[in-house]
Design a protein around this nucleic acid. Structure first.
Length: 577
RNA sequence: GCCGAUGUAGCUCAGGGGUAGAGCAAUACUUUCGUAAAGUAGAGGUCGUGGGUUCAAUUCCCACCAUCGGCUCCA
């Protein structure tokens, strides 16, 4: 099957699902059922609620009907006749009214004993399909036409692939993703915590989690520093006027945390982004063309009042740490700056073995209300980014309508170890905020000119990036990033002293080492170290204390790594970020 | 935010209108041991929070808090 055939197969299965449901519960109101990325769904209004336990029953009914679906036969009906086919089904009636008022022909497709209003896009017939190639896997609520003001329907999701083998592979991936869930691993590995007293979506990082965060920050800084970035520091709140000027206040009105003062009339808000503050550092004194580019960077938190129902672990939070930077430069300098950022991004993701895909995210010319600034400005900005991508010779896709409200951007989509994709790094052009804040510099001819602003993020946000790499590595961080790099397991009491001396030596070169001084046997110490996913485990007994080489158990690896004392120190020293 | 499910010890989970249960972890003692779980003992709980019904609520009802799934894919 090619992509289209697979989509047709999935859509056909949605019909089959509806047929099975209508046989089992004939008074159910059917609505719609499209194909989706990994299968299909169908939305129903049931007269009494069904539960997950009913899914196998529906699935069995689908398999029972399947052999009789040898073809899909098309027919046409008038609106009135069509409505008679769906007595009391206001959802179908609404669709029929809509389509007929739009002048569309109302088409029906029949397979076996079942038929339904449908635009088309089916397989020829699915009687020969592999009965093991689909599975109903989820029950969810969904609003009629995606609008929360409408009645809630019951959505049944199915997974479907060409063969059972492909379905099984997909189920294995989902299971693997579930096992790697960063929320579970984060608690098990003691990386971060939540508290109902602090509030939902407000993660706190433990000492171990903080080590990982700081290592990530230091790594990004190491890549940025050679490109002339300077660090700045800003308060976490500001007067609302700042964001009214930038345009964020209206755009993100529902997502802003407000702070009230009893001492003044001023309205304050928790910063939902950093760019407006950074513009005010730029504006704090007269700038010359000789000063540009000015590159302000900062790892700092922003606060966004996300819908509570959407919060999830570290991937969707209300306090977000951005590895943010803003570059103020001339039009001539944009290309070089973007190239520098591209250099940082590629080096950063290479360190995690995550391949990158590039998307040029542009405005939607048909929907300019969503954006600040004139269409010509946008066209110019897009042309600049496009020229840059062409020069790099990299493949990219274009995302229409994916731009930020102040300018187009280049987004980088990283792929993790189990094939999932995450949009993380970004380079964004902004002609609008410099205008709104009336930023200027004096050019060589003495004239005042507007700088261009570039926004960029490398990891996206530290929280989200941590959620991605915890799952990417399944909690087993590489040596350079592990909160504890090595654990020493003395065999007996007599080896503790030697272990402490060795640990001190390793600590002196910046290595993160712990000693298991419990009374446990060696086997238990190894088991505990493996449970904590510590990269290196060293058993310390008479042989090691006597000067023999260390047999290092490497997490996830069968064969031990053999290093002498000097080699061990040298190897860990290399890992310092 | 909306819909649904869930919330019992640090973790995984059992139980149920009448004084709360297990395993693991943690603690103490014994053991000091060579490559994935040593032994014994005691302890650990406002059964998410608040209110209601009841002679009696952890159990039933309501509200809130928190977690999980979904709310973008369109006949």
């Amino acid at each position: 099957m090619d992509k289209e055939q697979l989509e047709h197969y999935r859509h056909s299965l949605a019909h089959l699902l509806a047929a099975a449901v209508m046989e089992l519960w004939p008074d159910t109101k059917r609505t719609i059922g499209p194909a989706i990325d990994d299968g299909f769904y169908f939305d129903f209004a049931f007269s009494k609620p069904i539960s997950e336990e009913d899914l196998p029953k529906i699935e069995a009914k689908m398999r029972e009907i399947l052999p009789s679906w040898t073809s899909f036969e098309r027919s046409e009906l008038s609106a009135d006749d069509a409505k008679k086919e769906y007595p009391g089904n206001e959802f179908k009636h609404e669709l029929i009214d809509q389509f007929s008022s739009e002048g569309q022909t109302l088409t029906f497709y029949k397979s076996g004993d079942y038929w339904d209003l449908c635009r088309g896009g089916h397989a020829e017939g699915i009687s020969g399909a592999d009965p093991g190639s689909f599975k109903l896997h989820k029950l969810a609520g969904a609003y009629w036409r995606g609008d929360e003001k409408n009645p809630q329907l019951t959505r049944i999701y199915g997974l479907a692939f060409e063969t059972k083998a492909e379905l099984d592979a997909h189920l294995t991936m989902l299971e693997e993703a579930h096992k790697r869930d960063h929320r579970k691993l984060g608690a098990e590995l003691d990386l971060f915590a939540f508290s109902p007293l602090v509030g939902s979506g407000l993660p706190m990082f433990t000492p171990k989690g903080t080590i990982v965060r700081k290592l990530l920050e230091e790594f990004v800084w190491k890549l940025m520093k050679p490109h002339g970035y300077m660090r700045v520091d800003i308060p976490h709140m500001a007067k609302a006027e700042l964001y009214k000027t930038s345009g964020h206040y209206d755009k993100f009105a529902d997502d802003i945390f407000h702070v009230h003062s009893k001492k003044s009339e001023d309205e304050f808000i928790m910063k939902p982004m950093n760019c407006p503050h950074h513009t005010q550092i730029f504006a704090s004194k007269p700038r010359s063309y000789r000063d540009l580019p000015i590159r302000y960077s900062e790892v700092t938190k922003v606060y966004r009042d996300e819908n509570t129902g959407q919060l999830a672990g570290l991937s969707r939070v209300r306090s977000i740490t951005q590895d943010d930077a803003h570059i103020f430069c001339t039009a001539d300098q944009v290309k070089q700056e973007a190239l520098n950022i591209y250099d940082i991004i590629t080096k950063f993701y290479a360190a995690f073995d995550m391949p990158l895909r590039i998307r040029l995210s542009v405005h939607d010319p048909k929907n300019m209300d969503k954006y600040l600034g004139a269409p010509e400005t946008w066209d110019n900005a897009v042309a600049t980014l496009e020229g840059l991508l062409k020069e790099l010779g990299k493949e990219y896709e274009v995302g229409v309508g994916e731009a930020a409200f102040y300018g187009p951007k280049i987004d980088f989509i990283a792929k993790d170890a189990i094939g999932r994709e995450w949009q993380l790094a970004t380079i964004q052009l902004d002609f609008n905020q410099p205008e709104r804040f009336e930023l200027e510099y004096t050019d060589s001819d003495g004239a005042k000119k507007r700088p261009i602003m570039i926004h960029r993020a490398i990891s996206g946000s530290i929280e989200r990036f941590m959620s991605v790499i915890i799952e990417h590595y399944a909690g087993a961080f590489p040596l350079w990033l592990a909160p504890v790099q090595a654990i020493l397991c003395p065999v007996g009491e007599s080896h503790v002293e030697f272990s402490r001396a060795l640990a001190a030596e390793l600590d002196a070169v910046g290595a993160r080492v712990e000693i298991d001084e419990s009374g446990d046997k060696v086997g238990a110490k190894i088991r505990n170290a493996a449970g904590a996913k510590i990269p290196w485990t060293l058993v310390i007994g008479d042989k090691e204390a006597g000067g023999e080489a260390f047999q290092i158990r490497v997490f996830g690896q069968e064969a031990p790594l053999v290093l002498d004392r000097a080699g061990l120190i040298a190897e860990l020293k290399k890992q310092v970020v």
